[in-house]
Nucleic acid binder design. Structure first.
Lengths: 195, 195
DNA sequence: GCCTTATGAATGAACG
DNA sequence: CGTTCATTCATAAGGC
């Protein structure tokens, strides 16, 4: 069960009505003064309400997650250092540290193993092979199958790119901009969600 | 202070990446006494629903507002997304590497909409649906039906893959929890809006 | 301190 | 549909 504390959300605003997309919000509180009759809803109406609420719940969660991501990178300076062996639990006590966006840093030993496997021809190991490699690497530090998979992906891509790179000296006048100044404001059109 | 009871609405949801169809067929049928053919709600229940919806609407508004600020530079920095209008193929004339095809980069808003649709059950939209979605997304940036189609393809494939390989990492010196944003209600329990 | 580079990870698009 | 490729993003490391 989920409980939403509204106290923190109180705000003065609320004069717009995009939020009131669904009828149910025209009287705002004290709606039925003294009326004692019960409301009767059809299944369809019930379903509509349910979906509407679900949609909002989903959206809220997504927005919160996205907000976390956006703010995570901003204060990412407070964290433990990398995925190495250290990471002393400095936060063990009360640290409400958020954002644990650490990325895998292969140890020297792991890198050597990976490199040697890569150069032994098997450029694209299958799932089984990945598991084996991961298992082997685990002896030298924390690693996941995804890490191994990504490593090979990147290794392939970058070794290929290296080949094609060495003859690109002429700088194209890259037509990057074309920016239009007032777009920033235009972007604030209050679009809300068009389901 | 106002407390919202949400247990009845989304107790099951939030598996993300997977079905999680929050349709209500399972509990929709006359759960009360079995004798009623319509839903009967008391004023209190009605009021709760009303407040829930209102609260979500308000929250969403606020979050959207915040996001505009946070993503303002992000979106504008990338300039126009996608090759967009010009995409001048830069004739041969020596430059072969050419900036060529840029890939579609959905805007924050577009992503929000796509995610919402995906999680509302439409895992595999048909042609008609694709057109609608594309049309809706066009309001927030350039996008083609192919883009939308690909997005859903990838979304499905990757959400399925993710549940098949839960990374096999060992604890070691893992820094507390909080890993990436993916707890069910953890983000609602308390720190719902830490801003 | 920034800036540059290296590289792990995310993801749009394409392939079979 | 599942897998792979190609491009991009984000961040750790190192130089200035």
């Amino acid at each position: 069960m989920m409980v939403l504390e509204m106290g923190a959300l109180r705000h003065g605003g609320r004069e717009r009505e995009e939020g009131a997309r669904m009828q149910s919000e025209e009287d705002d509180g004290q709606s039925q003064q003294g009326v004692l009759y019960v409301k009767v809803m059809t299944d369809d109406q019930m379903e509509i309400l349910r979906r509407q609420i679900s949609a909002y719940a989903t959206i809220c969660e997504q927005l919160v997650e996205m907000h976390k991501e956006l703010t995570a990178q901003h204060d990412s300076l407070s964290g433990m250092r990398l995925g190495s062996v250290y990471c002393d639990p400095l936060i063990a006590s009360g640290g409400h540290k958020v954002s644990g966006r650490q990325r895998w840093m292969p140890t020297t030993m792991q890198l050597q193993i990976l490199e040697s496997i890569f150069q032994q021809g098997d450029g694209t190991p299958d799932k089984k092979k990945i598991k084996e490699i991961t298992s082997a690497l685990s002896k030298h530090g924390q690693v996941s199958e995804t890490n191994v998979y990504n490593w090979f992906q990147n290794r392939r891509a970058r070794s290929k790119r290296k080949q094609l790179l060495p003859l690109t000296n002429n700088a194209e006048s890259e037509v990057e901009e074309t920016d239009f100044p007032e777009d920033k404001k235009a972007n604030v059109e209050k679009p809300f969600f068009p389901f």
